[in-house]
């Protein structure tokens, strides 16, 4: 079936199988492999992307369901070559280990900070409650997001 999408500010029109998952459309059709598949059941958030401005788990959606939507993936979350404040903060504090969760966490945290000016630690933990990090015990990541929140946009 035909679908039309805008991904990272570029229009895409194409034919997809109705059963194609959104995450596979992004990874395989568009080559945007920064969006990961971790759990396949919507538990881990590695596949998080922004769909019409809100973060969703792209492994639980058909590409067909996203027809007509605007999608931002990790590759498009910061404008240009740079990093957004969440990415910068994680980079500076070296809060990551294996990094597999990073794309999803960056997207969920970026969206959260856009809507919450002065979050406290428990707000940040709640905001990340759809994303699993298996390496760090979350603390370094939570701290990095809190630090990012203190930066001016």
């Amino acid at each position: 079936m035909k679908i039309k999408l805008n991904v990272n500010s570029e229009d895409y029109t194409g034919d997809v199988e109705p059963r194609l998952l959104l995450v596979d459309f992004l990874r395989d059709t568009l080559g945007l492999t920064g969006t990961h598949v971790g759990c396949e059941t919507g538990s881990c958030g590695s596949c998080t992307v922004l769909l019409d401005g809100r973060p969703v788990k792209s492994c639980l959606m058909l590409a067909a369901q996203a027809d007509g939507s605007r999608i931002i993936t990790i590759e498009g979350i910061s404008k240009g070559e740079g990093m957004n404040r969440v990415q910068k903060s994680i980079s500076e504090s070296k809060a990551l280990q294996c990094g597999f969760c990073a794309s999803g966490i960056v997207i969920a945290a970026t969206w959260f900070l856009e809507r919450n000016e002065n979050p406290n630690e428990s707000d940040v933990r709640e905001a990340l409650s759809g994303n699993i990090c298996r390496c760090t015990g979350y603390q370094p990541i939570v701290d990095a997001v809190l630090n990012a929140s203190k930066e001016v946009k």
Binding site: G42, G45, T48, L51, R54, P55, V56, K57, L60, M61, A108, F112, E126, A127, S129, G130, N131
Partner: peptide, 9 residues
């Protein structure tokens, strides 16, 4: 319900 991302879906 679920988590913030699932609530968006």
């Amino acid at each position: 319900v679920g988590d913030p991302l699932l609530r968006n879906m």
